[in-house]
Write a protein that binds this DNA or RNA. Structure first.
Length: 624
DNA sequence: CTAGGGTTAG
């Protein structure tokens, strides 16, 4: 006998008898027996226990709202909410698929709510990143039901605080955990360590880690990740050494955290040594590690190595494809990124919002205006990806950079959400290229409102004013900057050599080889002059850069780093340099000419992208 | 026997 379900599209496909004979606890069997829960038929079950077991199992297989409703309807018909905890399961599933209202309503209908019921609701909200709802449920639990949280409750709430960097709330849960004597629980402390790390409180995280009675593998992993996230990569690596000395075997999370630490150090040598560890210990089978590794090679300037690692991944998932795509995008290979995207879709991968962010970014940096517009239009229709602020930033950048300033502005005005600094920053960037003081002023005003302490916004606007001859406005911007006590971030370049990262600032004379570096620099500038390659103003951004004109352009840190690199490495070796601010127009020309004269490939990474200089041209084609 | 996320990849 077949019973109809309340929703027409949802029919189950297994008889109860069939279901019972199968060992449904075995994941492989279960998958084979129930390939697609949405298209299955449910025969009536004689006893409620098996029905509930089946429903719980089926619920875990699918994640759509209509499916939850179908199961819900079935529960109302022949079982109680308390039966096999089906009510709790439904609550967490409803939250997971985004039906918070259904979840809350159902939750209130559950007659005897125990701790697990509350935890289902709280952890559900936590996972969805709804800190407010999560905390609200947590307070209700304590104030209405007079229940004390257990370790699961605390971990959920603390993780939620970590996700949204809610330090104050996190601290108060920390205090509560202490009062309840829960700081003996490893899991609770681990999530606290993570929370403090995410909130930038390295000291608090370290202290907790040091005093915790028992440290698990996860504790060490969390601590390494916290170091890596808080600009203390070397400490993260020493932490790894200590972990090994305590006899703890690393797992995939350890390696991923270590790779992150490498990224902060910016050391390719270190990255290569960790690559060796990965190969030796057989970690190369783990997708998360390989994805992180591929991404790290790209971020440290070695797109070729990144691609090789990607090719080693057996069945790359959507995240791995996106990582590769992001690499191409950052290095300015727009059409390659587009090809890669089409290929991943052809392979059946489902692109998500991150994929589209990088794809649009790639289009923008390569001037693929039509392609970018098309993907932006179709991402919702074809892939169900709602545009976010990041996507709008990319599109404003794409339109603005290619000269359609008004279109970019119109797009901002058409947005349903409040534009953030990324969006206005993209517009301001375009205004500085095309020296549009009117729109630039509006963008900069928004930006200064959003973050008055960011020096770049004042400088860019001031430079735009200078460029169009509005000297008074320009000096007013400088004055405003002083008034707001904003300090300009000093430009800084890094280059790795001989097991060390060498750092240079403008006019730096602190390096032990300083004298030779300056001699080399003078020699290089002389060579450029003699070759008749005087920098022309062909570069649109010339003399409007983040570091002001007052700086001694000839002693900019990029030039020092390049001179040092040429001085200490063999002829023909590629130089890889990182910079904390965007490269200035003059240094960009300098790098191009040096790449030609010295026959060197120079790769410079700025906060926005990579520049590959070879034979006198840059991969960005002077198009930022 | 025991429902309910400790960390980690784009």
């Amino acid at each position: 006998m077949i019973t109809k379900c309340s929703l027409p599209s949802v029919v189950f496909n297994l008889s109860h008898a069939h279901f019972k004979t199968q060992n449904y606890n075995h994941p492989l069997r279960a998958r084979a027996a129930l390939p697609d829960p949405l298209s299955c038929r449910l025969h009536s079950c004689s006893d409620a226990d098996s029905l509930v077991s089946f429903l719980i199992f089926a619920l875990g297989k699918c994640s759509s709202a209509s499916y939850c409703e179908a199961v819900h309807a079935r529960v109302l018909k022949s079982a109680s909410y308390g039966h096999g905890f089906i009510g709790d399961q439904l609550v967490s599933k409803y939250v997971a698929v985004g039906c918070e209202k259904h979840a809350e309503k159902l939750f209130d209908e559950i007659p005897e709510k125990d701790l697990v019921s509350w935890n289902s609701l709280i952890s559900g909200f936590s996972r969805k990143g709804c800190l407010a709802k999560c905390l609200y449920a947590f307070r209700r639990m304590r104030n209405e039901a007079f229940m004390n949280p257990n370790e699961v409750t605390l971990v959920s709430v603390i993780s939620s605080c970590a996700d949204v960097k809610a330090l104050d709330e996190g601290r108060s849960i920390h205090g509560l955990s202490e009062r309840l004597g829960m700081l003996m629980e490893v899991k609770v402390v681990n999530s606290l360590v993570n929370m403090y790390g995410k909130c930038g409180k390295l000291g608090a995280a370290c202290h907790l880690f040091e005093v915790m009675p028992v440290r698990s593998l996860v504790s060490w992993n969390s601590m390494i990740a916290v170091y890596a996230e808080n600009e203390s990569p070397m400490e993260g690596i020493s932490c790894f050494t200590l972990m090994r000395r305590s006899g703890i075997q690393p797992d995939d999370a350890t390696l991923v955290a270590l790779l992150q630490a490498c990224e902060s150090v910016g050391s390719i040598r270190l990255l290569e040594s960790i690559h060796c560890v990965i190969c030796c210990r057989g970690f190369y089978r783990q997708m998360s590690i390989m994805t992180a590794l591929s991404s790290l090679y790209a971020k440290t300037g070695r797109l070729d190595a990144s691609h090789r690692v990607f090719l080693e991944i057996r069945n790359p998932d959507s995240i791995a494809w996106t990582a590769m795509l992001a690499g191409y995008a950052a290095h300015g290979y727009g059409s390659e990124a587009v090809t890669l995207f089409e290929l991943m879709v052809k392979k059946g991968m489902m692109p998500d919002h991150v994929t589209f962010t990088h794809l649009l970014n790639a289009c923008s940096h390569s001037g693929l205006v039509e392609e970018g517009k098309w993907y932006f239009r179709t991402m919702l229709e074809l892939y169900g990806v709602e545009p976010t602020l990041d996507h709008y930033s990319c599109m404003v950048d794409l339109l603005g950079r290619s000269g359609f300033l008004e279109d970019a502005y119109e797009l901002i005005k058409s947005m349903a959400m409040e534009p953030n600094s990324g969006v206005w920053g993209a517009l301001l960037g375009a205004c500085r290229i095309y020296r549009n003081d009117e729109l630039g002023k509006e963008a900069a005003e928004h930006l200064i409102n959003l973050d008055p302490s960011d020096a770049r916004n004042y400088i860019v606007l001031s430079n735009i004013y200078s460029a169009v001859g509005l000297w008074k406005d320009a000096s007013e911007m400088r004055a405003l900057m002083k008034e707001n006590f904003v300090a300009r971030l000093p430009g800084c370049s890094y280059i790795e050599h001989g097991n060390k990262i060498h750092q240079f600032v403008v006019g730096d004379r602190s390096h032990p080889l300083s004298h030779m570096i300056y001699t080399k620099l003078t020699e290089l500038i002389g060579k450029i002059r003699r070759a008749g390659l005087t920098p022309k103003t062909e570069f649109v951004l010339h003399d409007v850069d983040e570091e002001s004109k007052e700086d001694m352009i000839n002693e900019h840190c990029e030039k020092l780093a390049i001179s040092f690199g040429i001085l200490v490495t063999n002829p023909g070796r590629t130089l890889i340099i990182r910079k904390n601010l965007r490269i200035c127009g003059d240094c960009h020309s300098f790098a191009k000419m040096i790449s030609l004269i010295e026959k060197r490939t120079i790769i410079i990474r700025d906060p926005k992208r990579f520049h590959h200089f070879t034979d006198g041209i840059c991969s960005c084609a002077d198009y930022w």
